[in-house]
Amino acid sequence: MQESAPAPLIRFSNVTKEFAKPDGSGSFTAVDRLSFSIEKGEIVAVLGKTGCGKSTMFNLLAGLIEPTSGKVDVTGHDPFQDFNAFRGKIGIVFQNDRLMPWRTALDNVVLGLEILDARRSEAEVIARRWLSRLGLSGHEGDYPHALSGGMRQRVSIARAFAVEPDILLCDEPFSSLDEMTARDLRAEFVRLVKQAGKTAVFITHHINEAMDVGDRIMVFHRPARIAYEARMDAASKGAGRQAIQDEILKVLSLEAGEGMPPVPAVVA
């Protein structure tokens, strides 16, 4: 490796993740010898059909599960082994909002800061600011059950951003929202990440969302391996967009035949 080249912020090297089957009959491979790297400041959109292993890759990256083999490296640490090295460094927006029902919107945003031992008064100021940036002023005292799905997801985005992590991981954060709300939040998300110079991994199963959000798109085939990669620069967001979209569609449709289990023969 050249000395001058900066080490990537995130690097997967030959990562495999197998899950034991519940009936004990061997194991199921969700991620298969996956390798990629992500540079500081990039937003990488990961695209793939449901069940292709995106969330599993995400959990490996977040250090919530351990790879069966291979190496996950984030800023020089193993996120599973050196779990505590990432205190305050990684912010996660999960697929579902995962708000604590017993905490108000404000207290849900305060949670991360509270765990990081911030002073209560400071944490509240920060949380209020994030809630208002995401258009939730006036709802600070509401419990999650009194908020709409879009509002809850915005609270969970505020919770992740409030700790000002270097790396943001988002697992289909807007997939349960209506298209109008999702579009606003997508733009807001990119703005927030770019403004603060953060690095983000954004998982989605919508082609357009991947193209709108990502600086780079990785398309996964099952079991999580990269089938196609594209860089989204000014040209590809403009005139070249259609070509890339066609390419991605082709790659995704290729999998349908290949990845499906054989149809069992019907015995008459």
Binding site: A62, L64, F83, F86, G88, I90, R98, L111, G112
Partner: peptide, 8 residues
Amino acid sequence: EMTMSFRP
């Protein structure tokens, strides 16, 4: 898992 992601 959400709580653990903040490393408490």
